[in-house]
């Protein structure tokens, strides 16, 4: 059997025998039911309006407010944190600058101390060298004097031995002068010869 044709015959919406068959009541509005519906609907609306909706709305708005507050709060905290961070960065920079400054100053002080020490050492050395040179000069001079005296004495002695006589003071003097004139002492004092 064709099901579509069957449904068409099984649901005779209009033709319909009055009692059991027929479906015209499906589309026939009933006043009584409409009144019941209206009453039920109005009561439902009043109950919901009074007891349900305000609380739900309030809760939702409270939540929305809470969320907005939380967002604001976190925003504020973030800004604060950023501020603190910036401050710390600034301070760090300052500290670094100061450290650099200190190091530079220390270095400068060190350099100065070193230069001073070098200078001092140099001066001292020169002083010592000068003193040593003076000593050497003095010693040389003294040595020369001594050699000269020695030579003179030797000369006198040698001459006495050769001449078998004691030289008087005039002879002696003359001899010495002659001998000394022949000896070049300049080599001893390290100075270039004068003649």
């Amino acid at each position: 059997m064709d099901p579509i044709a069957f449904i068409a015959t099984a649901l005779p919406l209009a033709e319909a025998a009055e009692e059991e068959g027929g479906g015209s009541f499906l589309v026939q509005p009933g006043i009584g039911l409409m009144i019941w519906t209206l009453v039920a609907f109005v009561i439902t609306m009043l109950v919901l309006k009074r007891f349900a909706f305000p609380k739900i709305t309030e809760a939702l708005e409270e939540r929305a407010g809470q969320v907005a507050k939380n967002i604001d709060e976190s925003e504020r905290r973030r800004a604060e944190a950023e501020e603190v961070l910036a401050e710390y960065r600034e301070r760090l920079k300052e500290a670094r600058e100061q450290a650099d400054d200190i190091v530079a100053r220390a270095k400068r002080a060190g350099d100065a101390a070193k230069a001073e020490a070098t200078e001092e050492g140099k001066a001292k050395r020169e002083e010592l060298v000068a003193a040593a040179r003076k000593d050497i000069d003095a010693e040389t001079k003294r040595s020369l004097e001594q050699i000269r005296k020695e030579v003179a004495d030797l000369t006198v002695l040698a001459t006495e031995k050769v001449a078998r006589k004691t030289l008087d003071s005039d002879d002696q003097k003359r001899l010495v002068e002659e001998a000394l004139a022949e000896v070049d002492f300049s080599a001893l004092s390290g100075e270039p010869s004068r003649n």
Binding site: I35, W36, A40, L48, A52, F53, I56, A59
Partner: peptide, 28 residues
Amino acid sequence: IDLSINKAVLYIVLASVITCVSMVMIAN
């Protein structure tokens, strides 16, 4: 006016009661 209680009235009243009770419960 025929205000007889029938199946549809029962369903309407049920819908009304269940709507009210569940929504008020949820709201509270």
